[in-house]
C-alpha cells in the first residue's frame, strides 16, 4: 500500500504579527476546507525571564495573549512570524491564498510550497513515542514539549 503524502506550505509575512492579526488570519485559515495540520512559528515569548540577572521574574508582554480561533481558545507563546500548514490536496493552496489576502492590507505576505513538517518519525520521536507513533502528531512540536495540540473543528 502506498503511503499518502500531503502537500505542505507556509505563510510568511513581511512583519511579525500582532495577536489581533494572528486571530484574523487563523480564522480565515480555519474557514478553508482541507487544512489538515497547522504550526504557528515565531520567536518565543516566555512567561518568566529565562536568563540574565532578572532570571525568574515575570515577563509581561503585549504580544503574548490568548486568541479565539474557530471554536477554541489558543494561548500564543510566540510572536507569530510564520504559519506552517499541511493540506489535503494542492488545490487547497490557491483557495487558502484567496481567503487570507484581505487580512494583509498594510504589508505583504507569501505562500511558499515545500516540506516544512516531519512526516516520518526521527530517532527522537522513536524514543519518545515508540514504534507506533501517531503520524498526525509528528513534526507538530518538540517531542520534549509537554503541551498538547489544539484540535479545531474543521468545516468538512
Amino acid at each position: 500500500m502506498t503511503e499518502a503524502t500531503f502537500p505542505q506550505c507556509r505563510i510568511v509575512t513581511e512583519r511579525l504579527l500582532n495577536p489581533e492579526t494572528t486571530e484574523k488570519l487563523l480564522n480565515k485559515v480555519v474557514s478553508v476546507a482541507g487544512v489538515r495540520r497547522m504550526v504557528i512559528n515565531g520567536p518565543r515569548l516566555p512567561e518568566t525571564v529565562p536568563y540574565g540577572p532578572a532570571k525568574g521574574q515575570a515577563n509581561p508582554h503585549p504580544m503574548r495573549k490568548t486568541i479565539h480561533v474557530g471554536d477554541q481558545e489558543v494561548a500564543l507563546n510566540v510572536h507569530v512570524g510564520t504559519v506552517l500548514l499541511e493540506v489535503e490536496s494542492p488545490d487547497v493552496i490557491p483557495a487558502l491564498k484567496a481567503a487570507i489576502e484581505p487580512v494583509f492590507t498594510d504589508f505583504t505576505f507569501r505562500i511558499q510550497e515545500g516540506k516544512y513538517m516531519k512526516t516520518s518519525p526521527s530517532l527522537v520521536d522513536y524514543c519518545k513515542y515508540g514504534p507506533d507513533a501517531d503520524k498526525s502528531m509528528l513534526g507538530l512540536a518538540d517531542p520534549n514539549s509537554k503541551s498538547r495540540p489544539i484540535i479545531l473543528q474543521g468545516i468538512k
Binding site: E14, R15, N18
Partner: peptide, 8 residues
C-alpha cells in the same frame, strides 16, 4: 537584530 520588525 536580524528578525522582521513587528506590525508597529
Amino acid at each position: 537584530h536580524s528578525l522582521r520588525l513587528d506590525e508597529n
